[in-house]
Design a protein around this nucleic acid. Structure first.
Lengths: 333, 333
DNA sequence: CTGAAAGCGCTAACAT
DNA sequence: ATGTTAGCGCTTTCAG
């Protein structure tokens, strides 16, 4: 336990060679004699030497790390995304570092700033909630890809699900099951929330159900879903179905329905949005819109790598959502 | 969108001052005339200048960042911990960076290595699964605190819940409810898993229930909990209660119980371990052992800060668990 | 194959 | 109050 990091110089001294030779060995250069190579490796291991990434970066101008910022660590959807991002990045010999927005734009901005100061080679923002202007500023100095959030600037790459289509899909599913009083729990400023809400309203209007449109804010978190559901169930025209803007809010809705003695799906249908791994399992088994997080993640990494290789035109990828029927939706009665 | 990061030199030139004056201003030194300060700030903003953390680190020998490695991003327990860690670290003017083990010791080792190369000022490992020797090696170069994993080396600080006590608490709760065929879903190599399993066996033996001891592996993930539960329910002596080594595995158990048409808690009681935020809500409402993750997190940061201030003796903190009764356990019948 | 030297962006004495 | 300089740990020419 100490704080003295061995340097390349220490290794050189112990191995009885020059600094540059150590550098050569560490980077796996071929033109080094086996004897020397072994001596250097041994000395390095003995000292617990690890190259200082900062010094290396300073001279190379690259870090080989990609910063991944997630809006909210508690949302399993982002955990799914990060998993896929890590796999794709590793394949391309990049390492990833994770920053969290902790459900707060301010704290997310701190995470972005930290990465910028570290001079990561690229940034992937998943479900970002910070202002577009901040993102554009960041993008002036490093390639930025938005995942699961559409880009407002035409200089920034993005990959998103078709949010309106997903929302319409959800509402039409409910309508087909005979529901008419379909309420929405919206995600406020959350990623994709506005587009989903508009999709909901559009689908309702198209089915002549405009007068049943009602939304409560769920903030894309469980607690928000609970609060919204309480309000909706207390209203005069209790809905028979709820479309939540994301799975987390849908989990909250399920929870409150249970507290109220309502059975799902018999008394109340609930559909979410995300298809988090969590929705499939546990006692939940939530019907939801799959926004194909891992496809989005892989695409985001590809976009970033292309930028790193020199692409200059902006690319946007839109992924088609899928309805995943599970056991929280059923015929209205 | 480019890759040219402005340097302190660029700012100095634009503002018409020297490099050091810019440095002074960036660090908020007081003895700078207002006019120059304003000129520098303006130039910096114009260029979108951000100090290069690597260069700063190189000369200061510190990074003011704490690396936080979590065993598994999907486990909401770790999300809870990271939240608390971030708050405590921010109060002390440290930033945190997050690395994930992605449920794999090898990938966790990569995360640790990345942080070591970055020369983070300290490392907090939550629920770590890498070999103790790797941790000890890391601890030779940087202060390391283990959270939610007990330290095997007496040079490394740690904070853990009293796992055996928690397990005994869980089993005794079930016994008091009249259960006798109490099965366990163990966590294998997972953090705390061994101690919890031993606690289970000890409590069973103490109650004269040694012959009913049976465990299946759940790997501390939902899928594992599902697999284990299927095996347990298929056995000749179907248990009336299950004690899972963590909440995630318990969620899996709940899910399978439902698939089998068993009602919880009427037909089967389930108790978890962690008290993740997830367990409280959703349609789950899991009875569980609270291992007070946020207390552990705050303590871990304190331990780290103390090390950073120079403490040399090792400290271990053990947190007492609490039983949280919710609706997945009931009288045996 | 090996070593010396320059320089990446910054801070921290030290001058002025 | 402001400018100059050395040097953090590393890679990368360039000479031996």
């Amino acid at each position: 336990m100490s704080n003295e990091h061995p340097t390349i110089h220490d290794v050189a001294k112990l191995a009885g060679v020059s600094k540059s030779l150590v550098s050569l060995v560490m980077r796996g250069a071929p033109q080094v004699s086996d004897a020397r190579r072994a001596a250097v490796k041994k000395a390095a291991a003995e000292l617990g030497y690890r190259p200082n990434a900062a010094a290396k970066h300073l001279v190379q101008g690259r870090t080989f790390v990609i910063g991944v910022v997630v809006a909210d660590l508690h949302n399993p959807f982002y955990a799914d995304m990060v998993d896929s991002i890590e796999q794709a990045a590793t394949r391309a010999d990049y390492r990833i570092l994770i920053g969290s927005g902790f459900q707060s734009p301010d704290r997310e901005a701190v995470a972005v700033d930290t990465f910028l100061q570290l001079r990561v080679d690229g940034l992937i923002l998943t479900g970002s909630t910070i202002p577009a202007s901040d993102i554009e500023k960041a993008a002036e100095t490093v390639p930025v890809v938005l995942a699961s959030r559409s880009s407002t600037s035409d200089a920034i790459d993005s990959v998103v699900v078709d949010d309106p289509a997903g929302a319409i899909m959800a509402v039409e599913h409910l309508i087909q099951l005979g529901h008419r009083r379909i309420a929405h729990i919206h995600g406020g400023e959350g990623s994709g929330a506005l587009a989903r809400r508009e999709g909901y309203e559009r689908a309702m209007a198209a089915a002549g159900l405009g007068k049943h449109v009602i939304s409560e804010p769920g903030r894309h978190i469980e607690q928000g879903g609970m609060d919204a559901t309480r309000l909706l169930l207390a209203g005069r025209h209790r809905p028979t179905a709820i479309f939540a803007s994301n799975d987390l809010a849908a989990f909250g809705a399920l929870s409150v329905a249970k507290d109220h003695g309502l059975k799902v799906p018999e008394d109340l249908s609930v559909i979410g949005f995300d298809n988090t791994s969590m929705s499939r399992i546990a006692a939940i088994d939530l019907t939801t819109i799959d926004q194909r997080g891992s496809d989005q993640a892989a695409a985001a990494v590809s976009l970033l790598l292309e930028r790193l290789e020199g692409r200059t035109e902006t690319r946007r990828i839109v992924v088609e959502p899928n309805l995943v029927r599970r056991s929280t939706t059923a015929m209205a009665r």
